[in-house]
Design a protein around this nucleic acid. Structure first.
Length: 293
DNA sequence: GACATTTGACCACG
DNA sequence: CGTGGTCAAATGTC
């Protein structure tokens, strides 16, 4: 939408200066307009792709389509301009090439298990098997993130949290291994946040990042929304001073603009528009055929 | 020495 | 029993 508005603005500018426009700059302006609308059309197609995948996604995310439609139908120019500015500021301050993120939030509705004691007991062969947590209850949030195209493209884009890698696993049907990270402050502040990073099969320059658990080692300027329904005792004294929580700030911003769906199910599409002339990323359908079995 | 990463093994779960 | 998530010893880095 913002790109369309931008294109319209260019058209108006051109229109007002048309009589005295020299042919060279006229050509430049037309090129710019054509490119802007072309890019907007490309993104529109992504959204339509999302809508068309309703059937597949509905099993998991009943609200996907409505939110996509909100994007398409209900955005107001004023808020779009604001959104544009917010995105631009946020992204430029980070200096990342992640141009396009799709956020998918879900709440695990599954049952929870009682975890027994014996945490941290011995290694293999011990008579008391160590406790292994599985099936983290709470929300799960999946984000498609463009990989850095310069430097080490193996590294997942920075999300302003410090993560410690604790595992890597070959995943059936995936060309690339899945990496497992947990919050660096897990021990210190009992922070339960974790994330998984997985390259997409058909686009090595895109990561699927799945966040689990919300950070309790951080302070948010705005109250986290559905993504942190029940945070466990935030630590007020922990102010790292290093920038804002980009990942969750994005969610908050999207919530503020679109409004959250019901508890636990909504989908926010984040277009990070640092430089609108670059968006090599294409939306990937979140279906099973895409990658994992 | 403290902390992060690697990696094979362990174990929960379907 | 296969798969995926986690553990923890070994190793690397600062």
């Amino acid at each position: 939408m913002s790109m369309i508005f931008h294109g319209m603005k260019l058209v108006k500018t051109l229109e007002s200066s048309l009589p005295e426009k020299p042919p060279e700059s006229l050509s430049t302006s037309l090129d710019e307009i054509a490119k802007t609308f072309g890019d907007a059309n490309e993104r529109l197609k992504m959204l339509l792709e999302i809508r068309n995948s309703e059937t597949a996604l509905n099993q998991l995310k009943p609200v996907v389509v409505s939110v996509a439609n909100q994007m398409l139908m209900q955005m107001e120019p004023a808020s779009m301009q604001e959104y544009w500015l917010m995105c631009g500021g946020s992204m430029s301050s980070r200096g990342t090439e992640a141009m396009f993120q799709t956020q998918l939030m879900a709440v695990d509705g599954g049952g929870r298990r009682n975890l027994t004691a014996a945490e941290g007991s011995g290694a293999s062969g011990s008579s008391t098997p160590r406790q292994r947590r599985r099936k983290d209850e709470g929300e799960e949030q999946t984000v498609l993130v463009a990989a850095l195209r310069t430097g080490n493209t193996d590294l997942p884009p920075d999300d302003n949290h410090t993560w410690r890698k604790y595992g890597q696993k070959e995943i059936l049907g995936s060309r690339f291994p899945r990496a497992y990270y947990r919050c660096t402050h897990q021990k210190l502040y009992n922070c339960p946040a974790k994330k998984q990073v997985q390259r997409l099969n058909d686009d090595p320059f895109t990561f699927r990042v799945t966040y689990r658990g919300s950070h309790t080692c951080h302070i948010y300027s705005t109250a986290p929304t559905a993504s942190s329904a029940a945070p466990t005792a935030p630590i007020p004294s922990v102010t790292t001073g290093h920038s804002v929580d980009y990942g969750l700030a994005v969610v908050d911003m999207a919530d503020a603009m679109f409004g959250s769906g019901g508890v636990g199910t909504n989908m926010d599409f984040i277009f990070s528009i640092n430089d609108p002339s670059q968006h090599h990323q294409r939306f990937r359908q979140l279906d099973d055929g895409d990658e994992n079995k």
